[in-house]
């Protein structure tokens, strides 16, 4: 049976691998002997089959199909460091020097890392720790009050050591001076003018002015206390309302009654506004009466 070139090409791989029956094998050989084109192709393919594909070719094929396998290989290497690679991974490592180098490092890395879990500090370390904890123990034994005093002392030392401390101290001093001498109820209000007059009038006058200043300071404090007391008393019913409304707000929130909660919140806001108005000016008229209309929804 004669064979054409197309048929010979179809059977070529099977023939090369010896998988054909004797009759087909003979037909392929006969065709090869009779056809110079197929003989040339066979010579070319035989030469190609006997040489290994170079690394660039493999890389090119992988890049065009599945992508470089190193990413997967490294994932597998990282999952089980130090373990023997399976067949697929071992085959990759045989052909990839980078991954093989990485595998070699990963082989000894766990041992070194485990060894690095401990590192001896210098010989004085234990002594220093024991000295530090002895201080803690002593403070514990000393009791709460000395400990608090010690903490406050340490806090104060830290504050004083800060560069901003001088500015802050000056600011506080200026505020205190303003409160003492410039506000309407300041006990030292007018002190500078009095002092100036006293100095100009002579020593006797200084003494009189000093007495007057002390008396004025006392009167100022009394006035301040009286004013605060009056405001406090006037605002008392509004404060009681505010407390009651706050409680009702809490209950409404607890019950999930959002409408009631909104009303109580509004009432609470009005209470706060009234209290603020009274503290600002104790004679200011307040429209609402405590304990009455603000309770209405």
């Amino acid at each position: 049976m004669s064979m054409d070139c197309g048929r010979w090409l179809d059977l070529y791989d099977a023939w090369r691998s010896g998988a054909l029956d004797p009759a087909a094998d003979r037909a392929c050989r006969d065709h090869l002997a009779a056809c110079p084109e197929c003989a040339d192709l066979h010579a070319l393919l035989s030469a190609g089959l006997d040489t290994h594909a170079d690394a660039d070719l493999t890389a090119g094929i992988l890049a065009a199909t599945s992508g470089p396998p190193c990413v997967r290989a490294r994932e597998r290497l990282g999952e089980a460091p130090g373990a023997a690679p399976d067949e697929l991974l071992a085959a990759h490592l045989d052909h990839c020097p980078d991954c093989a180098g990485l595998a070699a490092v990963l082989d000894w890395l766990p041992v070194i890392l485990a060894d690095m879990a401990e590192e001896e500090p210098d010989a004085a370390f234990t002594f220093d720790v024991l000295r530090g904890t002895a201080g803690v123990r002593a403070r514990r034994r000393a009791g709460a009050l000395p400990r608090l005093r010690q903490r406050l002392g340490a806090w104060w030392e830290r504050q004083v050591a800060r560069p901003q401390f001088a500015w802050e101290a000056a600011w506080v001093a200026a505020t205190v001076a303003a409160l003492l001498f410039l506000t309407p109820f300041a006990p030292g209000r007018g002190a500078s003018e009095r002092a100036l007059r006293a100095v100009q009038a002579g020593p006797v006058r200084v003494e009189q002015e000093a007495d007057a200043l002390v008396r004025a300071a006392g009167d100022g404090w009394s006035e301040l206390a009286a004013a605060a007391d009056a405001r406090h008393h006037r605002a008392a019913p509004f404060r009681a309302d505010a407390r009651r409304h706050a409680g009702e707000l809490g209950r409404a929130l607890f019950d999930g009654d959002l409408a009631a909660a909104r009303d109580r919140l509004a009432a609470l806001g009005r209470d706060a506004a009234d209290v603020w108005t009274i503290w600002r000016d104790p004679d200011a008229p307040i429209d609402s009466m405590p304990g009455t209309h603000r309770d209405a929804p």
Partner: peptide, 11 residues
């Protein structure tokens, strides 16, 4: 596992 491989790479 990624950190381990990164460390091996750095080494």
């Amino acid at each position: 596992s990624r950190a381990r491989v990164e460390l091996a790479q750095a080494v």
